[in-house]
Design a protein around this nucleic acid. Structure first.
Lengths: 222, 222
DNA sequence: TGTACATCAGTGAACGCGCGTTCACTGATGTAC
DNA sequence: TGTACATCAGTGAACGCGCGTTCACTGATGTAC
């Protein structure tokens, strides 16, 4: 075994177990015994369990952000300062999400991890992701803003999170839903199928008519 | 203090702590000390931590399902065997979700708990909810089916889960999102505001055009 | 080429801690006769 | 009305267990002179 084979084995095992059971419910003893690695190796290589969790995310998010920045660069260059249509933006993001984990790891695991990152307590993780990867998300939302000038800023903010909820919820719970779909409708659904189904729904959600009376006390001009 | 005051105090404290930190991350010691109740009282009254978690859910879901069945009875009676329009179905569900916890508990806590139920490992909880409350959800989806005859069954299945994802994700992460919205757009958003914003988005999502080519190997006639 | 030392991945065993659960017990209230 | 017993909410202390982390140590490899 090479020197850092241990590190890789820990990461490979940990990401699968975390995705299956969550962070608090997965012990270092389970990870290290499944990875056939010494218990102390996690603390030796990563420093702590928290740091291991962050490392699992970095291994996905670092290549993702790098590639996505590249994709957005291309897109901006091709439209030479003009507005990039919404559908192209969504398409580019979907394509990048699909491509990156396929290189080495599992897309399914990646989506489960994203779902966990939002729902599990783990405050340190949300802070870490926000600090390390917030800027690429902001770049994307700014481009969405230009593509949907008719939406008030706050409405767009909420709708982007509505859509994010749909995607994370569906893809992170994919296994259970896929089983039901297979049993009830005889369909074998892949992640790619799901993204094809998601596309018209997401576009319709973002382009939906504005809500009726803004009951709120705080008036807002467009 | 009355006899079962202890039970209520445990439930009131547990639901708030569970919603804030998750199940695995909340210890019985934290719950009982915050509730100013003996540590052994949880096992005395509920039997185990798992049973306490289920009891927290039942206290919300029992009144909800009872009331929602009543609302659906009314709706069916009013339409006398005919089809109930989609918007009325969604409106009724939203109204019931809003009303029930308002009686005694917090809607925000309820939505957080629902989000946790989906994302936390806790297999026993998903099984429990499915067995106890699955039938009311099935009744609702059957009515949605009649209201959207143009949708293939499997497409409707997926879209309902897309929408469920939006609602649970947004409402269970409400606190963090509300803080951002308040800071960036000077809006103070209530749950009611959010539901008003959700309505057109949900309707548009369910009525979106069908996805393009069903690439799948398994053909399906409408 | 040979010796001394430094570096570093990895190890085995133990540490203290917080966890859910158990158990023998108390003290108040209700019931039977 | 009085006594004996049963029931039941609640208690305090302890149980064993699995946890993340630490620490002294090993053994292989690289570097200096």
């Amino acid at each position: 075994m090479a020197q850092t084979d241990t590190v890789t084995r820990i990461l490979d095992t940990a990401e699968v177990l975390f995705a299956e059971r969550g962070f608090a419910e997965t012990s270092l003893r389970t990870i290290t015994s499944k990875a056939r690695v010494n218990l102390a190796a996690v603390n030796y290589h990563f420093g702590s369990k928290k740091a291991l969790i962050q490392a699992v995310f970095s291994r996905y998010l670092d290549p993702f952000t790098e590639r996505f920045h590249g994709v957005l660069d291309d897109l901006e260059a091709r439209h030479a300062g003009g507005v990039i249509p919404l559908e192209e933006l969504l398409e580019s993001m979907a394509r990048t999400v699909l491509e990156v984990p396929a290189e080495r790891h599992s897309l399914k695991v990646f989506m489960k991890l994203l779902g966990l990152a939002y729902s599990q307590a783990q405050g340190h993780l949300r802070r870490y992701i926000q600090e390390e990867y917030g800027s690429v998300f902001m770049r994307f939302t700014e481009l969405v803003r230009r593509a949907t000038p008719e939406l008030p800023d706050s409405e767009r903010f909420w709708r982007l999170h509505f859509v994010l909820g749909t995607v994370i919820f569906t893809l992170s719970g994919l296994d259970a839903l896929r089983d039901i779909a297979e049993k009830d409708y005889g369909e074998h659904v892949t992640v790619r199928d799901l993204i094809r189904r998601l596309r018209p729904v997401v576009v319709a959600a973002l382009n939906a008519p504005l809500p009726e009376a803004p009951v709120a006390s705080h008036a807002e001009a467009s």
